[in-house]
Amino acid sequence: MERLLGIEPPERAQYIRIITQELSRIQSHLLGTAEFLTLIASAVYSPFLYMIIDREDVLTCIESVTGARINHSFVRFGGVRNDLPDGFKDMTLDTLKMVREKTKDYKELFLSDSIYRRRMEGIGVLSPAEAKRLGVSGPPLRASDTPYDMRREDPYLLYKDLDFDVITRKEGDSKARVEVRLDEIIESCYIIEQCLDQIPSGPIMAEGIPKKIKPEPGEAYYRVEDHRGEMGFFVASDGTDKPVKVKARGPVYAYFQALPPLLEGVYIADVVAIAGSMDACTSEVDR
């Protein structure tokens, strides 16, 4: 939409957007991994509950900025709604330190747990070519040895100024997908720390945004790296204050297209291991 209007948000707003996005990426990956653990273990499996505890702390950070836990409604045309609150930096740094240590613990736990490895290694192998053909994006694609990340491919916001790695794994099996997710949590922590160091002071909204927005007739497509993969938004305008067409392209629909070839001829117990490691959110598909 901003692309359509030709507005560039101020730098501070862009940093705040990156911080909140990466924080919510951390919470989403924690939740995804936790949910996956309930699938291969059970709802009383302790690491699942410990992850939820970590996630609550991350959510507290998000909440202090946006005021909501899940649906933020926080980004405005040309900026963001609220500035960072006082003490946000210290709180977030503490939380990130804790999250990073815990995530390393989880990785160690999964590496040393022989039952977990028996369940996960070599299960549901998705080859890079097959993954690309089916339109899979996000962590499952990167687990199949394809360094494809919107933050790198088509840098939006200020990602081009930040230093981060695109996590990949060679194996393409369920275990790799979970590992990618855990590594991305650590990587996101690193990104947020950079942002908190570099963030300049200044306005959080661009100047001269009219109350009633009437963009020029035209179309705009904008891609971001969602927690689960490539998320695209298409907006078409005919010059009035209501869009002609808005289309959101979610990543999860493609995950479901990838499931049938993976699920052929596996055990029932492996079905949950494969589908769970995709971290597919069914309600995103059922729209």
Binding site: I40, D113, I115, R118
Partner: peptide
């Protein structure tokens, strides 16, 4: 033990 181990597959 119940709260700290994941589940085996039946063939395993």
């Amino acid at each position: 033990i119940r709260v700290s181990l994941p589940r085996f597959r039946i063939d395993q």
